[in-house]
Design a protein around this nucleic acid. Structure first.
Lengths: 205, 205
DNA sequence: TTTTGGTTACACAGACCTGTGTACTTAGGC
DNA sequence: GCCTAAGTACACAGGTCTGTGTAACCAAAA
């Protein structure tokens, strides 16, 4: 249908389409026929690239597992920016929750492979927060990192059922309180809207 | 199989079994045959009580929608006790996340009926927090209530993928910080473990 | 006794699913 | 020209699912 405009490999085309359909409509809701038809290839070709649907599901989740890009901005800013980017993603109409949580919810507790990668993803997110907090010299970075991922996952779950991007904003406000309570300087509150004239610095602790 | 020991109505038996199977294994994963077989009734009987699987799903979710019992304990204690009860539920091996979030994740965004009841449930939880906070005289009870449900849902999502009841504890600690920041007296920290000898009261605000 | 309502057993339609088998085509490299 | 690799078309096996149709059964009420 569009072979000249797609310099990507066939495997990537399959994964891209599977990602879109699995994520937006659910893994169980989409059959391999549907994916093949969407690309315009035969089901046989799909099975030549992936031995089974389970393998395709695993590849789909692994492809979703991307590490956040390293940034040179101050750690506190990076942490709070997480919630801004979350809010932007919530506002997009093709957002449908966390693919890892959804996959675990959908495929049940018996699917070891899916659960394993979901745990790895969640842990990597928590580790990212912990590293930023350590850079800030926060005492119990580990506990606080856990609390921050709770806010992230909580806002995702809430947005999934309520379609309300303001959940990300609420999470950011809560995160700001938690950070400030841990002695982190978050400027005027970190919510961007209020940072106007006086940006009084506040001594940690 | 056990007709004399079940004084409950047939409809309730069906719902009870559907609840167990839907919740533990997933709605899409369980067919009506499986439910009927589990009870020991014919599929025909099941369809005599529920016109379709969709109706059964809706009834399942509605049955899960229970209001928290009114309590005469202090509001702050009630709020924090939420996280204790959450931790207890996480520890139980038959806990598998929030049935409403799971249903939305599983059935997709197009299922209006499911989404509607899920939203109603989430809103009722948020309203419960808001009422307790209003009783405490918290200024922006609404915003804080939202933040608390984020912690609840976040810990549920995290426990779903990680099977770690400590997530409820982390949520409780974060909630304690948020409450104290709003001027609520939460005693020594509200985590139960530390409340030993000196329980110095702290003036609100 | 007769009727009636709930239940059972069981077949079946129609749809969808995963995965395979097979023969055909097409394009590029030798 | 020939060979190989990749893709296509298409049928099909074997399974699951929802929902219905039908005839028989059984117990309690009338």
């Amino acid at each position: 249908m569009a072979p000249p405009t797609t310099p990507q490999t066939m495997k990537e085309r399959i994964l891209e389409t599977a990602d879109k359909l699995f994520y937006l409509q659910g893994i169980r809701a989409i059959g391999v026929d549907t994916i093949a038809a969407e690309i315009g290839i035969s089901k046989r070709t799909l099975y030549n690239h992936f031995p089974s649907k389970d393998a395709l599901i695993a590849a789909y989740l692994e492809r979703r597992f991307v590490q956040p890009r390293p940034s040179d901005k101050p750690p506190a800013e990076q942490i709070l920016a997480t919630f801004d980017s979350l809010e932007r993603r919530f506002a997009a109409k093709d957002f449908r929750g966390c693919p890892f949580v959804n996959a675990v919810a959908e495929l049940g507790p018996h699917d070891r492979a899916v659960k394993k990668i979901a745990v790895a993803f969640k842990e990597s997110r928590r580790a990212w927060f912990r590293e930023r907090l350590s850079e800030l010299g926060v005492a119990n970075a580990d506990a606080l990192a856990t609390q921050l991922v709770l806010l992230v996952d909580g806002s995702i779950a809430q947005d999934l059922v309520r379609d309300d991007p303001a959940m990300a904003r609420a999470a950011k406000e809560a995160a700001t309180v938690l950070l400030r309570n841990a002695g982190v300087d978050v400027g005027d509150g970190g919510d961007g809207t209020v940072k106007q004239v006086k940006r009084h610095k506040r001594a940690p602790q």
